[in-house]
Design a protein around this nucleic acid. Sequence first.
DNA 1: AATATTTGTTAGATTAATCTAACTTATATA
DNA 2: TATATAAGTTAGATTAATCTAACAAATATT
Lengths: 221, 221
Amino acid sequence: MLSYTEENYLKALLKLSFQNEDKPETGTNEMAAYLGVKPATATDMLKKLKEKELVSYKKYGKILLTEMGKKSAMVILRKHRLWETFLCEKLDFSWDEVHEVAEQLEHIQSQKLVDKLEELLGFPQFDPHGDPIPKANGEMPEITRTLLSELQEGDTCTVASVKDTSAMFLQYLEKLKVRIGTRLKIKEVIDFDGSMYIAIGEGEPRSVSMKFAESLFVQKL
Amino acid sequence: MLSYTEENYLKALLKLSFQNEDKPETGTNEMAAYLGVKPATATDMLKKLKEKELVSYKKYGKILLTEMGKKSAMVILRKHRLWETFLCEKLDFSWDEVHEVAEQLEHIQSQKLVDKLEELLGFPQFDPHGDPIPKANGEMPEITRTLLSELQEGDTCTVASVKDTSAMFLQYLEKLKVRIGTRLKIKEVIDFDGSMYIAIGEGEPRSVSMKFAESLFVQKL
DNA sequence: AATATTTGTTAGATTAATCTAACTTATATA
DNA sequence: TATATAAGTTAGATTAATCTAACAAATATT
Ligand SMILES: [Mn+2]
Ligand SMILES: [Mn+2]
Ligand SMILES: [Mn+2]
Ligand SMILES: [Mn+2]
């Protein structure tokens, strides 16, 4: 049985392995920074996780989840995303409110609860932020994601998921009526600062910053 | 902000205050036994809760929740019973499975979550075991409860709630088709051992032990 | 009232998770 | 290559929650 804290470290390692796309290794400092603890603390926990054969690493070396560790972490991610979906779909939470609560709910221990929840939600494929939900067997559809900033003038796309899931960005998207699935058309790319002039759904075109364009994943049409 | 553990102590004190009907005080040993810890541990926690003004007590004296402590405990009980109801109503858990999971869920911190959950469930009055659910304002209908064992030959009643909520008893009730609301008629009381011969709903009369009759609360008709 | 029993507290230790400060190893740079 | 910087570890301390063993107070019983 894993502690609440151990689970958080595992999930962090999984998330970081997604982030560092090319190679899934991580360092102690990166891990500590992600979790908001000091490197010394991360080192201590790493030893414990290594003891439990959930991570593989040696002193001063790179950190990697073992198969077992990855499996455990995927279960936690599955719970997180199912709970986020539940909060949105069944309890009318907005997509900027769900993460905080799901951080707590993901640690509830009950196989049956997760599976029944998934059933209640109709086996959703994606969470409210457009991220794929791992299946009970541990599989998760590997999706190729394109940043809005990678598109060219004249391209059309639909919003697939949000890269930056901060409440601030999510609320801004809400204000612009940009949601998962919304159709976007790139009218103009401003080379000077990387900003874009885009049409959102049927609305009037408007300008968004490069930071914005680098925070949204889209599906090119 | 209260820790998971502090919340459990508060809830225990509230439950014990219901149990010790006449006076709501409790002792260190009783509290420790209830929580499955040693008396020394309970004493330590008591000091902390006193420091936070959630309980009032002095060395070697009786333990009582303060108004603040009682309020906090009621919120936890409210969450527990709402989650139990959710698990039964929405996720098809049986009434002997819900308690364990609700013990975890009751500690999730989110005012909005609780209130939305209550709304989703249609503002239920009672949990799956027939226990009243405290309202958001902290009030809980004070119900006079009669034990089945207090009834006489010829009396008729409906099942109001279960006193013993152990999985073993709940499963036995399930087998006998005794549920909340089921109509019972006392055919005969055996003075020798306190057992009863009762009709359950429309079924054939059958005998139940005194222990059984002392574990069920009923509403006399 | 004297003594025995029950109830409750204290002292000292342990474990998990965290920190700071000091140290070590690896990597980058001149 | 020598040295500076970054990355990672260790030692020692702290806090929360727990325990055991010993002690103290309150209550019950002769
Ligand atoms: Mn999230
Ligand atoms: Mn999400
Ligand atoms: Mn319960
Ligand atoms: Mn209940």
